[in-house]
Amino acid sequence: MNEDAQIVSQILSGKTSEYRRLVDRYQKPIFRFVHNLIGDQHDAEDITQDVFVAAFDHLRSFDARRASLSTWLFTIARNRSVNHLKRKRGPKTDLSDRSVRSHTATDDVARQEFWQQLDEALALLPMEQKTAFVFAEIEQLPYAEIALIERTALGTVKSRIHRAKQALRAVLEPTMREQ
C-alpha cells in the first residue's frame, strides 16, 4: 500500500513512466473484474484501458488515507462498467466468452450448458447484486472493501450477495434436477 502511494507521488512529480508499474500490478484484477461483469472481451479491454487512463488523469484526487489504490481502481472500474452496461441496455450473451473458456479444454457438453446458464443468470442479476457478487465471489474482496466501493452499508452488501447467490441457485436447481 505504502509503496503504491510512493509511486503515485513519483508520478505526480512528473515521472509519468512510473505509472507502468501500477498498471502492471493491477491490470489483471481490474480486467478480470470488468470482464466478469460485462462479459465481452473487447469491451472489457477498452474499459480497462479507460479505467487506467482515467485513473492517471485523476491521480491527484487519489487519497491514500481514504482507500487503497486497488480499492480506488476498483471503484473507477465498477462505475465505468456499470455505465457501459446501462448504455448497452439488456443482457447480452456473447461468443467471445466461449473463446476464453475453450482453454479449459472440456468436452463435457453438460458442463458447458450448465456454465452458460450460470452466465446468463449472472447477466440477468440486478446491477448492484451483480457487482457485489463479482467482487465477493470472484475477486474475493472483503465485504468491508466492497461496501466502500459500492458506497453502501456492510449489511446491504451482505444482503445483496445473499440474494445474488439465491438467484443463481434458482437457476442451478432445475438443471441439477434434469441431470
Binding site: Q27, R111, F114
Partner: peptide, 29 residues
Amino acid sequence: MYDDWINQRRAIDSPDGLADCVMATVQET
C-alpha cells in the same frame, strides 16, 4: 461444477499489450 465455473472466471487473465496501450494513451494525455 459451480466451483469450476467460479474458478474459470477467476482464471481470466488480462490480455497482452494492455499496459502498452494504457501507457501510450497516458503519454498522449
